[in-house]
Amino acid sequence: MFTLGNFLTLSTFGESHGLAYGGIITNFPAGLEVDFEKVQYQLDRRKPGQSSIVTQRKESDTVVFQSGIFDGKTTGTPIGFIIKNENQKSRDYSHIADAYRPSHADFTYDQKFGLRDYRGGGKSSARETVNWVAAGALARQVLPADVEISAYVSSVGEIFCEKPYQDLDLSKTDESDVRCPDPATAEKMIAKIKEIKKEGNTIGGTIMCVIKNLPAGIGEPVFGKLQAELAKAMLNINAAKGFEYGSGFCGAKMTGKEHNDLFNSDFSTKTNLSGGIQGGISNGMDVYFRVAFKPVATLLRPQESVDRDGNMVTVEGKGRHDACVLPRAVPIVENLAAFVLADLYLINKLRRL
């Protein structure tokens, strides 16, 4: 339950207020020259304290590789890495040592394990995703160099980026604090998040991810379909509530005549309502999907709840929290997708030997 992947795997450890996070990656190909700056760049995109609309916890999120790499190249043996926690404030959580926060994992962890680490949620903390970004950033380097993975915030609450991704310059996503590449929409999103934050409240939204130049043939035909592996990875993100690819739920309103992607003579398709995936396997067109995220459960305002004995209590979030998870979730979505793609890409190479 702490391992991601089928052939290429990531097993993780660490808690929000423990000494460090880290992971072990197995079956990573030997002889790959690692670009460490690219790995750290992705971690920097995820780390807290980047702007006024995200949590102000200060962490450098510096990754240290401890095995599986020699003279800058992967050796083919398990790759171990750690990322130290540098700015824990466990006292911010002492008030919920025996109380269950609404919509958190407090109650369910107690039911499953008989105890829980209440400091920032322990293993249930979204800080766990730092491991996924590190592994995904490394896994990106396994993929063909022309494969592009770009995610962006497509909605915050009821504010939507109405432009299709084809009309957006996705290279400009990070120029906005909210990581929406449409400046006019981004401005509205930021204003909404700031308004919600002042109220001690939180807000959700969606993230769109686009994968370009993925070779045809990636994904398995039955269990291990490309869309299923992507969905499984995305729905493991703490606040994720839904996943759709291609036409998604809109496709349920269409007829087959409207929905079918007709072929061109070069095997591309005239439309791409399939989202680049047919029969669970990539067809060479853009793969695109959208992930829905709920509002962050920690509110900086009083809420009624219960304690471990069933007594009614009042809980109120303290410390540093995101009012909206979306801006920092963009690199999580991208790098989780990269890990899934690298896993399926390597499986496909083994099949073709």
Results as ranks from 00 to 15, higher is better:
Phe160Gln: 11
Arg179Tyr: 00
Tyr165Val: 00
Ala145Gln: 15
Ile159Thr: 08
Phe160Leu: 09
Val156Met: 03
Glu148Leu: 15
Arg179Cys: 12
Asp167Arg: 15
Asp182Phe: 03
Cys161Tyr: 05
Ile149Thr: 05
Leu143Val: 02
Ala139Gln: 03
Val178Glu: 04
Val142His: 10
Lys172Cys: 10
Val156Asp: 02
Val147Ala: 00
Arg179Met: 06
Ala139Phe: 11
Cys180Gly: 03
Ser171Tyr: 05
Tyr165Ser: 07
Glu158Ala: 15
Val142Leu: 09
Leu143His: 09
Tyr165Gln: 08
Glu175Phe: 04
Tyr165Met: 04
Gly157Thr: 05
Asp146Gln: 14
Leu170Pro: 11
Leu143Lys: 03
Asp167Gln: 15
Gln141Val: 06
Ser154Gln: 12
Pro144Asn: 09
Leu143Gly: 08
Ser171Leu: 12
Glu162Lys: 14
Ala139Thr: 10
Ala151Cys: 06
Phe160Ile: 12
Asp174Pro: 11
Ser155Ile: 09
Ala139Ile: 03
Ala139Gly: 05
Pro144Gln: 05
Glu162Leu: 13
Glu158Ser: 15
Lys163His: 02
Glu158Asp: 14
Val178Ala: 04
Pro164Arg: 08
Ser171His: 12
Ser176Lys: 11
Cys161Ile: 02
Glu148Ala: 14
Pro144Ala: 09
Pro144Glu: 01
Glu148Gly: 13
Lys163Cys: 01
Ala145Glu: 15
Tyr165His: 14
Val178Trp: 07
Leu170Phe: 03
Ser171Ala: 12
Asp182Glu: 11
Cys180Lys: 03
Asp177Pro: 15
Lys172Ala: 13
Gly157Gln: 06
Ser176Cys: 02
Ala137His: 05
Asp174Leu: 01
Asp177His: 13
Asp169Val: 04
Ser176Asp: 13
Glu148Pro: 14
Tyr152Phe: 13
Val178Met: 04
Ser155Pro: 05
Val178Ile: 15
Gln141Lys: 03
Glu175Val: 00
Tyr152Ala: 05
Asp182His: 13
Glu148Val: 13
Glu158Gln: 15
